[in-house]
Nucleic acid binder design. Structure first.
Lengths: 338, 338
DNA sequence: TTGTACGCGTTATCAC
DNA sequence: GTGATAACGCGTACAA
């Protein structure tokens, strides 16, 4: 397990290491034939410049770090594919880490990546992340950082976000137009912007249509299928059923759906459902779930582009926030009341 | 964006770099109070040893690379979580890359990771990977490598596999016991062990039960939902419908299901379905899909453990193949014929 | 056009 | 118990 180094090649060719180096970084004068010869023998020997050494020297690594909270739902993997599409073309390698929704793991990941001398970072904050001091430091030092979806108002850096308020509003309004009047919102964990925005959209749609609404309509649920199941089961046991539910995301909607089905309720006749953050699940389940679709690939690509801009614009950079558009995919789970 | 280095700390404390270094690697003699003092000021200055420099010196990085073909289906992400569970506890960082089912990208990923001086690698081969010469080289050099699920017989290294043959046999037999006689197999891409094994299980279950079977029962399909849809549509158009389908994986089964539903066919009454490689989808779709469940977390954990064994046993190491067990989850999509 | 020498941040091996 | 220094592999200013 011995790496071939530049010295080995130099020795073999009876020339100095700098000549070899020059052959690989062709910005210096070097005789074309010697260069070709060097490149050929180097290839034959299986030599390639050691990026670790290069990183140490140049203080950067041509690597980009990505930290996401999870990748069980298809959302983050799809975003990552978008990120890679842009960055790999530019010659960057993409290192992915997941924080498992834990602030501690997230911070460890960030530090690991930073220590690896990555040139920039794309992050979606974990649910557990309350304290963003570390990021403030990074930003203050001018470290290229782009946040997406799970962002923080306290951080002054480029962001790619989705207009959660608007689409939550539309989704709720859709239910209202369909004739539903007693609607519950299964909300996300408190303290997160997207949770608040989706809740606000839900509330304001009610206000616009002069439908009564109070705290009882809104139940903090979580983000996982199990959360939706748990809350739905409680409601069923209490006999406290709404006409319809607007869930903070698809998994909670699906959890609710599973529990309703288990207890013999019909969807949408007994309870209508609308989800958020389209996963591939929505159109496959029974019945197909109405949901707000986010442009996952586009989110990734945009985040990558913003990061590149910041990296290339050494210093003189003004953070931007890009708001991307979505779509409400109406399916059977929210069909009109008969 | 300037890192605090060991020199900065040494200067601040008016001592030599070696003293600082010793304070951080407490295997050498150092006065306890000076050590504590150093550690305290170092922390205050935000210093931590640079892993890049350490890697260069030690020729290893405490990092493990993971390369998977994709992470759109929940399978690989779940395996990765298992991998991380074991490795992070041991102080390793896990770098994840995806090959997008392309041999070229896979090879680039491998080289990137190798260049990063990772201490070992866990890989699941992409569909596009025909040539495994590069891996042979790695193995010959004693580089720690563990393969899982998408493995190659040509490579003599530790592997974590699933008994595809056995479970394909069981899944097919289940359909036969349910009374289905004219069964199709939607197969995976040829040239891959798991494809072949699942096909063999399908065939041998027929042989055991003396059911006629020929090449027409087996259709090379692919691995994605779209593949299942395409093949199913063709069969529908040709009026060539089986009683039941055993699909190489869940997405193809789901693709078939979607297309059947679209054309008004009932499942399982018109066509029964069984999938493979349980995704979270199986129990959520309509109707719930009978499928072979693989122990995703366990696959990841086992692969990680095998890798650790190899890393720790410098040299004197015999590759092992671990075969993990699964389960056939019987659901509505393959209920008994009436 | 090519070679020499230094430095990137560490740790290990010597001295002292 | 502590300090100086070589080495890891590379790029580049400078000298030749």
């Amino acid at each position: 397990m011995k790496h071939v180094t530049i010295k080995d090649v130099a020795k073999k060719l009876n020339c100095s290491v700098s000549t070899i180096s020059r052959a690989f970084n062709d910005k210096y004068d070097i005789k074309k034939e010697t260069r070709d010869h060097i490149l050929a023998t180097a290839a034959a020997m299986g030599y390639s410049p050691n990026p670790i050494a290069k990183s140490l020297l140049k203080q950067c690594s041509n690597q980009i770090g990505v930290v996401v909270p999870e990748f069980i739902n298809s959302f983050f993997p799809e975003v990552i594919i978008g990120i890679q599409e842009v960055l790999i073309k530019k010659g960057y390698q993409v290192l992915i880490m997941q924080s498992n929704e834990s602030q501690i793991t997230e911070l460890e990941n960030i530090k690991t990546l930073e220590n690896n001398m990555i040139d920039g970072m794309i992050v979606s904050l974990s649910l557990g992340t309350q304290n963003v001091e570390y990021y403030k430091n990074l930003i203050a030092q001018g470290f290229p950082l782009v946040l997406f979806n799970r962002v923080s108002n306290e951080l002054d850096t480029s962001k790619v976000v989705f207009d959660d308020y608007k689409w939550a509003f539309f989704a709720t309004e859709h239910l209202i137009y369909q004739g539903y009047k007693h609607i519950f919102h299964f909300g996300g964990p408190s303290g997160h912007i997207f949770t608040q925005k989706r809740k606000d959209g839900f509330i304001d749609a009610h206000r616009k249509h002069k439908l009564p609404i109070d705290d009882n309509n809104i139940i903090e649920t979580g983000l996982m299928i199990a959360d939706g199941e748990r809350v739905m089961e409680k409601l069923i046991n209490e006999g406290n059923l709404p006409d319809a539910i607007f869930a903070v995301n698809d998994p909670t909607a699906i959890g609710a759906m599973k529990m309703l089905r288990k207890h013999g309720y019909k969807i949408p006749n007994d309870v209508a459902l609308v989800g958020f953050t389209e996963s591939s699940l929505a159109e496959l389940i029974d019945p197909p779930l109405t949901s707000v679709a986010q442009p996952t690939h586009e989110i990734g690509k945009t985040a990558a582009r913003l990061l590149l801009e910041q990296i290339e614009s050494k210093g003189i950079f003004v953070p931007q926030t890009v708001i991307l558009n979505g779509r409400l995919n109406v399916r059977e789970s929210s069909m009109k009341l008969k």
